[in-house]
C-alpha cells in the first residue's frame, strides 16, 4: 500500500501515472491479451454503425437461414437478417448499458461505503444490515422483478443494474476506508483542522480509489454477464435491438441446422467477458491489489 500514498501522487503527472499502469498491465501476456480484446470491442462498438454491411432490422423471407457466404459472412438468422451486422452492433448495446451501469454502481457504492466507513457506529450497522439483506436476494430475481414492473428500456436497465451491482462495492469501499482511517495522515489532517469534506476528498478518496476501481472493473464483467443473461431470458433490451443474449436465445431453437447464428454472438460475448476479466485482473495486479482469495459476491 505504501506506493499508493498521495504524497507520491501529487508529484507525478496524472496522465503519466495512468500510462505507467497501462504499461505494467500490458507487460504480462494475459494482461496484453485482455487489453487488446477490450480495445478491439470498444473500437468495433464505436465504428460498427458505419461499417455494418446491412440494416440490422431488415427482415427478408428470401434470405432466411442462409449459411455463411461471401455476401453474408456469418450467415443469416430465421428472419433473414444478416448475423454479421447484428453481431458487431450487439457489442454496442452491451458496452453502453454495462459501462454506464458500472459508473452508477461505482459512484453510489463507493460513496456510501466511504461514508459508512467514516461515520461507523449505529448508522453503519443499519446500512450494512440492509446491504447484506439486498445481497441475499438473488440478483436475477430482483432484476426480473424490477424489469417486469417497470419495463425493459435501457433507461430502466442501466440504473437497475447499477444499483444491484453497487451493493457489493459498498463493502469493499467500507473496508478500504477502515484501513485508511486509522493512519497517521488522517489524524494529522484532523489536527490541522481540516473539515470532514476536505478529509474525504483529499485524504480518503485518493487512498481507497484503487481498491474501488479494481472492484468496479470486476463488477463490469459480472454486470455484462447479468445483462446478457437478462436479455437471454427475454427481460433485457427488447427486439429488434441487436443484442448478443437476445440473439443467442432466438437462434437457440434452430441451432441444429443453423448453428452459425448462435456461434457468432457466443464468440462476441465470451471474448468480451474474458477480455474484461483479464484486464481487471491485470489492473488489480498493476495496482498491487490481490483479489484472488475473494468470493464472487
Amino acid at each position: 500500500m505504501e506506493s499508493n500514498l498521495i504524497t507520491e501522487d501529487k508529484q507525478k503527472n496524472k496522465l503519466e501515472k495512468a500510462f505507467e499502469i497501462l504499461k505494467t498491465m500490458a507487460s504480462k501476456p494475459s494482461g496484453l491479451i485482455g487489453l487488446t480484446i477490450v480495445l478491439f470491442h470498444v473500437i468495433l462498438a464505436l465504428i460498427s454503425p458505419y461499417i455494418a454491411p446491412y440494416d440490422y432490422k431488415a427482415i427478408s423471407p428470401n434470405t432466411m437461414l442462409l449459411a455463411p457466404s461471401a455476401e453474408h459472412w456469418f450467415g443469416t438468422d430465421s428472419l433473414g437478417r444478416d448475423v454479421f451486422t447484428r453481431t458487431i452492433l450487439g457489442g454496442r448495446t452491451a458496452l453502453t448499458v454495462t459501462f454506464f451501469g458500472s459508473l452508477i454502481a461505482l459512484l453510489w457504492g463507493g460513496l456510501l461505503g466511504i461514508f459508512c466507513g467514516l461515520v461507523g457506529g449505529k448508522i453503519d450497522d443499519v446500512v450494512m444490515r440492509v446491504v447484506d439483506a439486498f445481497l441475499s436476494i438473488p440478483w436475477i430475481l430482483a432484476m426480473l422483478l424490477i424489469v417486469s414492473l417497470l419495463g425493459t428500456s435501457t433507461e430502466v436497465l442501466i440504473p437497475a443494474l447499477g444499483f444491484f451491482y453497487g451493493k457489493g462495492i459498498v463493502r469493499v469501499a467500507r473496508a478500504a476506508t477502515h484501513d485508511v482511517i486509522a493512519k497517521d495522515f488522517i489524524v494529522s489532517a484532523r489536527a490541522r483542522g481540516h473539515s470532514n469534506m476536505s478529509i474525504i476528498w483529499n485524504e480518503i478518496i485518493p487512498n481507497v480509489r484503487d481498491a474501488i476501481l479494481v472492484e468496479g472493473a470486476m463488477r463490469w464483467s459480472w454486470m455484462l454477464l447479468g445483462f446478457s443473461s437478462l436479455s437471454f431470458l427475454g427481460f433485457g433490451v427488447s427486439p429488434p435491438t441487436p443484442d448478443w443474449g437476445l440473439m443467442i436465445s432466438n437462434a437457440r431453437g434452430l441451432m441444429s441446422f443453423a448453428y452459425w447464428s448462435v456461434i457468432a454472438p457466443i464468440v462476441g460475448l465470451s471474448s468480451l467477458i474474458i477480455g474484461i476479466n483479464l484486464t481487471a485482473d491485470a489492473f488489480a495486479k498493476a495496482l498491487g491489489i490481490d483479489r484472488s482469495t475473494k468470493a464472487p459476491v
Binding site: S229, G245, R252, M255, Y259, V262, L269, S270, N277
Partner: peptide
C-alpha cells in the same frame, strides 16, 4: 474459461456439441 463464460452460453454450447 468456465467461470467467466455465462451459464447460458456454456449450457447452449453443451447442447450444441453433446446433444446435436
Amino acid at each position: 474459461f468456465s467461470m467467466t463464460i455465462p451459464e447460458f452460453i456454456s449450457a447452449t454450447l453443451l447442447i450444441l456439441i453433446v446433444a446435436i
